[in-house]
């Protein structure tokens, strides 16, 4: 990391593991779960959040000295809403099908707690460059969980990854299906997203005992 100082690098790497926005800070779960039935949707969602959070953090951090603290929530919401409208229009223009599957969840990036949480906790008190790194780091941490959940749900649920059949053809009975393997359609239903995230938390906390909570 010649480009970044040690402290700056920590801003990016910390949210990926020990300070993960989803599993540790409990932020941004709302939209994270509903759209993870497909890997593609998870990736698009992650990129959208990366864009909104990275840029939003910089904007808020640049304005941090002129925002009156009483109306800061409204100011933050307007900044996010503007960025989200850009994302929404871009998705509608270039990936119409996908924006249909994401439906209202693009709009819900506005109230994604990850974004407001980082604005409040970081961007209001730090300079633009640091805020940018923090935004990128946190959205990458968000992306990691989304992609893991999306990967397992799509693989076990419909036997595909990014729409490509990786386990063989279920109708022609090739690949794994030749041995009597069946897709678990249950994985595609929304409750399984919660349980998969629960299992991820379990694995993560078993590996790092310091993260274990009091009951």
């Amino acid at each position: 990391m010649g480009l970044l100082s040690k402290k700056d690098a920590k801003l990016i790497t910390d949210p990926l593991t020990d300070n993960n926005p989803i599993t540790i800070q409990v932020l941004g779960i709302c939209s994270a779960l509903a759209i993870t039935a497909e890997l593609k949707a998870s990736i698009v969602m992650s990129v959208s959040v990366l864009f909104v959070l990275g840029l939003g953090n910089v904007v808020i951090s640049l304005m941090r000295n002129i925002i009156p603290s009483k109306i800061r929530i409204i100011v933050q919401l307007i900044v996010v809403a503007t960025l989200v409208i850009i994302v929404d229009l871009v998705l509608k223009a270039f990936a119409y099908e996908l924006s249909k599957t994401l439906s209202v969840f693009v709009g819900l990036i506005i109230t994604n707690c990850i974004i407001m949480g980082r604005f409040e906790a970081f961007a209001l008190g730090n300079g633009p460059w640091k805020s940018f790194l923090d935004g990128v780091g946190n959205s990458l941490g968000y992306a990691v969980i989304l992609i893991i959940v999306g990967f397992f749900r799509e693989l076990l649920g419909s036997g595909t990854l990014l729409g490509i059949q990786v386990l063989g053809d279920p109708i022609e009975k090739t690949g794994l299906y030749a041995f009597g393997y069946e897709n678990n359609g249950f994985m595609l239903l929304s409750p399984m997203a919660l349980i998969v995230v629960g299992l991820i938390i379990w694995v993560q906390r078993s590996r790092n005992q310091a993260l274990i909570e009091e009951n």
Binding site: V26, M192, L194, I195, L199, S206, E213
Partner: peptide, 26 residues
């Protein structure tokens, strides 16, 4: 109520809440 039951340590707090919510959703 769950405070009185012995949850695996790594699942305590957030993890078990997720899983219970999943079961309730089902």
């Amino acid at each position: 109520k769950i405070r009185y039951s012995s949850v695996p340590p790594a699942l305590r707090g957030l993890g078990i809440t997720f899983i219970i919510t999943g079961l309730m959703a089902i």
